[in-house]
Design a protein around this nucleic acid. Structure first.
Lengths: 214, 214
DNA sequence: CGCCTGTGTTACCGATCTGTAACTTTACGA
DNA sequence: TCGTAAAGTTACAGATCGGTAACACAGGCG
């Protein structure tokens, strides 16, 4: 029983705020953000519209809060990755990079795994929507972490490889959304491995050339 | 003056059907598909709701028609490409592949270039929506053409390269939508070239090995 | 001239949307 | 036991949504 849970008539139940966020995330994934109203969210969460508005103020703020919650799951993701490969040696970091590929692939192949922020970016075109700030900040942060991982793995063009992997991952997500899980996105791991290999080989060639020169 | 234009009080004007489609595409890009109503579309197109419904029957059908129109532009794209590189030799096909990269990059960097179908896939989650059929068919068709191009360019793993390029392109589009045109998507051409090079080199290595063996 | 097709106009339907007001009930802690 | 804060209830406002009915009007063509 967690900190913010409550006992209602003998039944353990999370508090309304959490129930609303979880149900909103679920319904947003199922029907789209604009495809579900606050009334439905509140009812399905086992509460009512007034409580929802007392907690979040507006639907837009609820959306932003849902995205912040989703983005927070990425921290667990990186913590797990750091726990598996705690060393900072180039060899361990390269293994960690390969593990990153497998992990994001398995996460992205889950039901709506990691698509929430992309969906928001597409469904809410208004440039000053509170949700867009969350999306932008998250994307930049993830790119930074991936660049750092590539760099400590000894990749010379760390930013190039990180961007390549980032685009491939987002492409895999969106492609899965378009043509289903059996399309090109199914080969994400193989493609990503090939790209990593080519960037590693490029670094090797540079190093060999430097050795030749003296 | 085109076939379907009309002279109204001395002014050349396209017919309502075309005006509605063009204005709908524009407004869908600006406010999202669910973010704009049929009333607004009709008014902004200089006509009225009844005419819209007489032509398209429903908003969903209008959406599908808009996507079919957008998808049709890809045919012009490939025709231009074929016109520039009419030969089928591996050398010309490889040059054509590089030209494909540059062309889709410049197309994707245009205002909402090629994002309409992705937006629809994200905004319309219902699996039997008429728009989803258009999206799926289009994606498969484009992949087929790209695979064929890679193959005639002498790439051994034609499908692998085609999928890699496809995912990169879709990733670039969606990334641009998330963090703007100055993010990782700005390096799409460089990344795509690197990937092509690595797939070409892989083929070279295979061929060298076969030569060594006999 | 009369016909016909395409288009414009107005009014309307029922449903749903975000958001608010006022009030009642519940739970928990001092 | 009483006070307080969170949560539930009901009703409603104002707007917008997709979609339809009925009718007026226009131009082209025989």
């Amino acid at each position: 029983m967690m900190e913010n849970d409550k006992l209602v008539s003998g039944c353990v139940m999370k508090r309304p705020r959490e129930r609303i966020i979880e149900m909103a995330q679920l319904l947003f994934r199922k029907h789209g953000i604009r495809g579900v109203g606050v009334d439905t969210i509140a009812e399905e969460a086992g509460t009512n519209k007034m409580t929802l508005y007392r907690h979040f103020g507006s639907k837009d703020e609820l959306i932003a809060e849902c995205l912040r919650d989703t983005a927070g799951q990425a921290e667990v993701f990186w913590r797990d990755l750091d726990a598996t490969y705690p060393e900072d040696t180039p060899e361990d970091s390269l293994a960690k990079l390969h593990q990153w590929v497998r992990a994001v692939a398995s996460y992205a192949s889950m039901e709506g795994g990691g698509c929430d922020l992309l969906t928001a970016a597409f469904e809410l075109p208004e440039p000053d929507h509170p949700a867009r700030l969350v999306v932008e900040a998250f994307k930049r942060e993830q790119r930074g972490k991936l660049v750092a991982l590539c760099r400590s793995a000894g990749i010379t063009e760390a930013e190039g490889l990180a961007d390549a992997l980032g685009l491939l991952l987002e492409g895999a997500r969106v492609n899965r959304r378009s043509v289903g899980p059996n399309g090109p996105s199914a080969h994400f791991v193989a493609i990503a491995e090939a790209v990593i290999a080519s960037f590693s080989a490029a670094g090797e060639r540079v190093r060999e050339r430097e050795l030749e020169r003296g």
